[in-house]
Design a binder for these strands. Sequence first.
DNA 1: AAGTGGTTTAACCAAGTGGTCAAAAGTAAA
DNA 2: TTTACTTTTGACCACTTGGTTAAACCACTT
Lengths: 203, 203
Amino acid sequence: MTSKDKNTELKILKAAKEVFIVKGLEGSRMQEIADTAGINKSLLHYYFRTKDNLFDAVFKDAFFSMIPRIAKMFESDISIFNKIEIFVNDYIDMIVQNQYLPNFIFHETNRNPEKVVFLLKDVGLNPMLIIDIFNEEIKKGNIKPIDPKQLIINIVSMCVFPFVAKPVMKGLFFNNNEKEFKIFIEERKKQVTNFIINAISIK
Amino acid sequence: MTSKDKNTELKILKAAKEVFIVKGLEGSRMQEIADTAGINKSLLHYYFRTKDNLFDAVFKDAFFSMIPRIAKMFESDISIFNKIEIFVNDYIDMIVQNQYLPNFIFHETNRNPEKVVFLLKDVGLNPMLIIDIFNEEIKKGNIKPIDPKQLIINIVSMCVFPFVAKPVMKGLFFNNNEKEFKIFIEERKKQVTNFIINAISIK
DNA sequence: AAGTGGTTTAACCAAGTGGTCAAAAGTAAA
DNA sequence: TTTACTTTTGACCACTTGGTTAAACCACTT
């Protein structure tokens, strides 16, 4: 495989990501992806054969850039409260830089749930590790007793959901002002961290 | 308009809702909607003229059944903690009975954000009312100082997000076992209520 | 029974879709 | 320069799609 190959392939993937992520599988046109990549439509098929193939490549990449991070971010040996703070900050930052990612992933996983099972097997992601971390902290008396699964969902919910519901939120709370939304999200890092810590710390 | 008219129109709307909500605008076929409704495809166009018209009817209905509830549920004069408890219970219950609603709404609002602005004007929904309620409680010293917008998003996030991320969650935490997920959601009502109350109540 | 109006249908169409293919253009070795 | 190859292109195709239309159907009135 020559470097030109790789180059074209990457150009295609980048363009496909751009289009698919905003418009979804059915909403995207091969022609538009080709145009975005600045190449001929036939070339898409030459490299990826079918639309589904191309989509799968993009989806896997998106999925793996979002989901496994959840676990990885908890792998360090600072205090649990620091872990939460860092996770909230980093995860929100990551989504800010990939605004459309959450909706893309959740729309597609809902449309085709079986695929998730298959993808999750590929990735070396063991949620039990994080669960154990929280259980350990509970046993040590550092945080209130709580089902770790519920806690994890709580944390992730508060980080991700505002971006899934962004248009509604913007309309409802910020008169569709993007800047206000941005400020809100920046402030949110602190707010969510405190909220969680208040909720689980022993008085 | 005869009762037969109304009947066919409702049949169409019901079928369209069924199909659109799962497959989205582009993913749905007029033929499939017609089949689901047990009628001829031309009849769809006779009643709704275009696919977009039909979709709009379905979307508005879905949107209004989900968003305005958030405000309405806070309109009573029980204690703030009771309000939160009731909201969490009712809202989760509502989504359980309309599992696909959140993803449908958020996918479409992201695909077409301008529409939200327009829709929100139609509905008599003033978020300032809820914000005032929380501000009042803060002033009275019943709950910790917190930006009410952040608090509202926190509450809604924790109720709605698990359903948006359901396939991923199911795969990650419950080995794709639907029953376990159901139990988790049932338990969640209590957990989320407590989590919020712990986070905002004065020690 | 015939007329009238809205409702339902089957056949049809134009546009757009993903995908193919053979030829052209580029590339590198002999 | 010739040969052998991969990459890129434009023309093309089969098929699906949303949408149209004219005729059939049906419930009512006269």
